[in-house]
Design a protein around this nucleic acid. Structure first.
Length: 210
DNA sequence: CACAGGATCGTT
DNA sequence: ACGATCCTGTGT
């Protein structure tokens, strides 16, 4: 076997273990906090989750579930532990991890990540220089992973494709209101449902967190 | 079938 | 502060 073929078969060890489906089958607020520090893996790319938001229907006028089940948001109503990817402003692919029980439209939006592995591929897709804020923002995370809405329904607890793996427990967590939901009721606009790792660089609108 | 607007981002 | 860019959900 040649040197190049050996290298091409070499896979880096992926961190942690796959998070099981029942990890996701709990309240979005609980799952959101515990997802901080976890790893998202796809192909050769490994990202560490640094910022998330919880959305939950019923009871949350900011949630995509607010209009009921539609073709677009169907995955959000399905069983926990699957992906819900939607296109925002016609451009950005936003990754959510479905939580709660089937029949509730709840999930966690992945807002920011650090790149743990596969920086070259991420830089190419982002067309950017290396930067601690490289993946600060949900559209950037979607771009790094080359997501599209056809990734909706993908099981994140099963090996292959996009996987989510357990990370270190969060040291300190910052909390604050969610971003970009001016259309929602005041109670939901102000609800502290955004979470970030206090010691992470890649976090959006940090001033609004504490 | 028209229309308003969006869980954003990069530039000005 | 604004335009990109397109699809969704709503109203007629």
């Amino acid at each position: 076997m040649t040197q190049t073929s050996i290298q091409s078969q070499e896979h880096h060890k992926r961190p942690g273990n796959l998070l099981a489906q029942d990890f996701y089958a709990r309240e979005a607020l609980v799952v959101a906090r515990e997802l901080l520090g976890a790893f998202i893996c796809k192909d050769d790319i490994v990202l560490r989750i640094t910022e998330v938001e919880a959305y939950r229907w019923p009871g949350d006028s900011a949630s995509h579930g607010r209009f009921g089940k539609t073709a677009r948001n169907e995955a959000l109503w399905g069983p926990a532990g699957h992906a819900y990817v939607y296109i925002c402003y016609g451009i950005h692919a936003m990754l959510n991890l479905v939580t709660n029980e089937e029949g509730e439209a709840a999930g966690v939006l992945i807002r920011s990540c650090d790149v743990v592995h596969g920086l070259e591929a991420v830089l190419k897709r982002r067309r950017a220089q290396s930067d601690p804020m490289l993946l600060a923002g949900p559209g950037k995370v979607g771009q790094a992973l080359a997501l599209s809405k056809s990734d909706s329904h993908h099981p994140l607890f099963a090996p292959g494709g996009i996987e989510v793996r357990r990370g270190a427990r969060a040291n300190k967590i910052l909390t604050g209101p969610r971003v970009g939901i001016d259309y929602s009721d005041e109670k939901d606009r102000l609800a502290p449902w955004r979470f970030a790792l206090a010691d992470a660089r890649a976090v959006t609108a940090r001033h609004a967190l504490k």
